[in-house]
Design a protein around this nucleic acid. Structure first.
Length: 464
DNA sequence: AATAAGTTCAACCGCCCGTAG
DNA sequence: CCTACGGGCGGTTGAACTTAT
């Protein structure tokens, strides 16, 4: 059958690394760099194969690795990126400094998948499980009876039986509602609009206090400058929950797409057949992104905000005010998805979007506008939508800006070369510093938006 | 306290791609 | 053009650890 592994061929050591081996590898790479991995073990005096050394270095010994549990924001970013990139762990890891693809993969398989299922989301498609099941049933029903039974078994065997998962989802979930996680002590605030507008109350329809979830109308519509498009809140982003003291990515969010820029999310994987041409073209943005900011960001930059049309305070101490929720109540105006330029990043500010210990956030979730012509954006469209891509791209952009300002490595150097660590031994430490610092830098860097977007596009394999 | 069941995560495996010869 | 090799990636395994019974 297959060839033997290099370790088998060379009768090399396998399994867990001893501290002595770690020392040897670390010392060698610190002094000489890894160079050709296949020669590293020999030169370092290790009875390991080059691949094993490389893996150990990348996943464990690298000085810029961030230790400790993933923050909620990191998890959210992973989910968001997974929705776009799928199981391209290395690319996902490239957006999470200090995290390895292996780590993220493990987290996904052991933790996030489970969480998503518990919320009734299929982790593979990011669709509600009920939809996935329906689709499966439809596809299976097209097949012959013999194949049908076998296939159904294999579908379920992937990990968890989907039917099982559906059964386990919160019973209170109406079929056409998406659960959005909020933290404890959340309240229904669908009557928060103090200006008499219907505002968000149409979207926020139910709260299950036991599961701490609230549900949004599945189909809602965004309306901007006369153009109306409908979307599903869950489709737009999935869910987000924000918890106090988990602000590694900064405490604010925003969206940004340079309206004059078209750039593509190209898979860096050399396997060309897997190229992922996800374009977020500016030509698509106006209908979904009413107000553009050239320097806003997701997770990072303080000044730009997305006001949610739905939001929840976590407790009495929360600083959510009516303005936070109502967006002036003008449901047909761009305020539904308003991106505000607001330099006030004071966390104690009553306007601060992420002040509360937890906030269900729907990404500028548009309010429903009755429109018979409105069609739901399909999931695949969502994945290609400028809305998400804008957020993702901007997150990426700012993360990379942060990197660049830390003199660590750029996207083109996502897999850090030893020489960089050696020449920037101090910056390697910096890389593991808090995100706040990076966020600040990212914000400063955002002034050079156009230039950086070009850099981003280049980094992702497309010239502007 | 013992053991089973479940979870986490480091490491391995095998495949694919790019490149040098 | 072909082949061998190194690097990189995603999937999988299994040891170590934790929790439940």
């Amino acid at each position: 059958m297959g060839r033997h592994s290099c370790c088998y061929k060379q009768k090399l050591r396998k399994g867990l690394w001893s501290p002595e081996e770690d020392d040897k590898l670390l010392n060698y790479i610190t002094k000489h760099g890894h160079g050709c991995w296949s020669s590293v073990p020999k030169l370092a005096g290790l009875q390991r194969c080059g691949k094993s050394c490389r893996l150990r270095w990348i996943n464990y010994l690298r000085p810029d690795l961030k230790r400790g549990p993933f923050s909620q924001q990191e998890e959210n970013l992973i989910i968001e990126l997974h929705a776009v990139l799928g199981n391209r762990w290395s690319q996902i890891a490239a957006q999470l400094p200090g995290r390895t693809d292996n780590e993220i993969k493990n987290l996904w398989n052991s933790c996030i998948k489970k969480k998503l299922r518990q919320r009734g989301i299929d982790p593979n498609t990011h669709k509600p499980l009920s939809e996935v099941l329906d689709q499966d049933d439809k596809e299976i029903s097209k097949l012959s009876p013999t194949y049908k039974s076998n296939e159904k078994a294999s579908v379920g065997s992937n990990e968890l039986n989907l039917a099982e998962a559906v059964n386990s989802k919160p019973p209170a979930v109406p079929e056409n509602r998406y659960p959005v996680e909020v933290s404890s002590s959340s309240k229904v605030l669908n009557n928060n609009s103090n200006n008499g507008s219907s505002s968000s109350s149409k979207n926020l329809t139910a709260v299950n206090p036991s599961t701490q979830e609230f549900f949004l109308d599945r189909a809602c519509t965004t309306s901007h400058e006369g153009s109306t498009s409908s979307c599903r809140p869950y489709d737009l982003v999935g869910y987000f929950s924000f918890h106090q003291n988990q602000s590694n990515y900064g405490s604010d969010m925003g969206l940004a797409v340079n309206p004059n820029t078209t750039f593509s999310f190209l898979n860096q994987n050399p396997r060309s057949s897997e190229m992922l041409p996800v374009d977020f073209s500016s030509s698509m943005t106006p209908s979904l992104l009413p107000t553009m900011s050239s320097s806003s960001s997701i997770f990072t930059t303080p000044p730009t905000r997305v006001k949610p049309s739905i939001s929840l305070p976590s407790d009495n101490s929360s600083t959510w005010d009516s303005n936070t929720f109502s967006n002036n109540g003008n449901r047909s105006s761009s305020s539904n998805m308003e991106l505000q330029s607001n330099n006030n990043n004071n966390n104690n500010s009553s306007n601060s979007f992420f002040d509360s210990s937890a906030a269900a956030f729907s990404w500028g979730l548009p309010e429903p506008v009755k429109s018979d012509d409105a069609e739901e954006i399909k999931w695949s469209e969502y994945l290609h939508s400028p809305f998400l891509m804008g957020t993702t791209a901007t997150a990426i952009q700012n993360h990379h800006q942060a990197f660049q300002h830390n003199n660590t490595y750029t996207h083109d150097q996502v897999k850090p070369e030893t020489s960089q660590f050696l020449s920037n031994s101090s910056s390697a430490t910096t890389t593991t510093s808090t995100w706040h610092h990076q966020n600040q830098q990212a914000f400063q860097a955002s002034e050079m938006c156009t230039k950086d977007l070009q850099r981003l596009a280049v980094a992702f394999g497309q010239t502007l």
